[in-house]
Design a protein around this nucleic acid. Structure first.
Lengths: 233, 233
DNA sequence: GTTTATCTTTACACAACATTTACGTTGCTT
DNA sequence: AAGCAACGTAAATGTTGTGTAAAGATAAAC
């Protein structure tokens, strides 16, 4: 799991220090800006995963920063504020904030909210339209029974073979590296001269072949395998 | 803008009616389930954009539904509850909820929170596409599939050819020296009389040519190559 | 224990790819 | 215009990753 960088925009330097320590123990790196203007600049840094934005600041306040970011900023924003009243909360959300946490807050709640936002982004990024529908390009998976059928012909796959084809089918049309398959399915690092994956893919191909007009598993030399998504595009 | 379908899981039928009317005026379609079990089934319906989940329910309660969904459900979840205490809120978020709204709430706040979640998903999905594909001057790269298309015609490039064109396209209109290409792509110093790069560029040109009105790769004698940026200058 | 199914390694052939060679062409310098 | 260095590219050569049969290792079932 990669380490996330967070940006705190808040004039309260004491809080910044506290949060920096706490979030570090949770595996985050906290960067601080103490006024709206400098925060606004940093907000476009793509390496930042999430912005913690305080409302009450001298100069440019939190709402003004939000407005300046234009309502659909690439990086998610969690608002922090002393004022807990509804109108502010709603305004913040309508201006483009992703969430809103009234001060004072428990560290654990802040953490839970940060994680909720980052988790959602992760899920969205790793999910394709087709991932829960189990049929792609004539091959149908039944997760419950672990059965696979190819153009309505039932195929017998072993557990590993099933997991590999399921993984490839979760991102049809995308290259999946052998490293990824090894780590996700075989639960070990891919070492040099390890030909296991190749063998499994070869076996899957052999079992699909009698019922398939074309090879659905494409090899991308020195990159990985693709489960072809049907109509080429 | 497409109409979103929302799923409300709450035993309070009066609230369901109220919300259904209100959300309809805001362009949402609300579907209701009045117990955890039937809600759990509906939760896997891909046509649903967001789930509103009440905590206090007879039978399976909200937390149990969350647990059953496994913590990273595809559809985002907004928890509703009468209990406003912190521990519950945090627990819900940690169990996989995206947000938490204590009852009673203003309709406008619910709307703002729903929109905040849907907006974030929309932003992530749109930036995802632009981050995996890169188009310059009629040539499009798709990093996930390592496919290259030239004016919508698919081109087959080898790994090295792909890396070279990707590198040239990362700085369109700029001269990239052979030394740089050699070190970045081939991972070795360019030695005298080494014609590899020339060959690769030649092969890329040959593959692009049938679909390209003009040569997009320009040679700058004794300096390097440029991927032309298009109309400008 | 044995048998059976499954996974991994070994071995070799082969195809895809990268690189070098060789020779023709271009464009700069004097 | 001659000379030369850089480039284009066809063809030959070198290298590497992949396909797969078969053997070996491991785990599960009996």
């Amino acid at each position: 799991m990669k380490k996330h960088k967070l940006l705190l925009i808040d004039d309260d330097k004491e809080l910044a220090e506290l949060l920096s320590d706490y979030l570090a123990t949770e595996g985050f790196e906290l960067i601080s800006c103490h006024d709206g203007v400098s925060g606004l600049e940093k907000a476009f840094d793509d390496s930042i995963s999430l912005i913690l934005l305080d409302v009450m600041m001298p100069g440019l306040n939190g709402f003004e920063v939000l407005k300046a970011l234009g309502g659909n900023h690439k990086t998610p924003i969690l608002m922090l504020t002393a004022k807990g009243d509804n109108a502010d909360r709603i305004l913040g959300l309508e201006l483009g904030a992703d969430d809103y946490l009234p001060k004072p807050f428990q560290h654990r709640e802040l953490l839970a909210r940060i994680n909720a936002i980052l988790r959602r982004i992760d899920i969205v990024q790793n999910t394709k339209e087709t991932s829960t529908s189990h049929e792609v390009n004539g091959v149908k998976l039944n997760h419950a029974t672990r059965q696979v059928s190819c153009h309505d012909n039932l195929i017998e796959l072993t557990g590993t073979e099933y997991q590999i084809i399921a993984h490839l089918m979760s991102k049809p049309g995308e290259i999946i590296s052998k490293e990824e398959i090894s780590e996700r399915v075989l639960k070990r690092k891919l070492s040099a001269f390890d030909r296991s994956i190749d063998m499994h893919v070869s076996n899957i191909r052999r079992k699909l072949l009698p019922f398939s007009p074309s090879d659905k598993l494409k090899t991308i030399r020195s990159a990985g395998y693709i489960f072809l998504a049907g109509e080429t595009q």
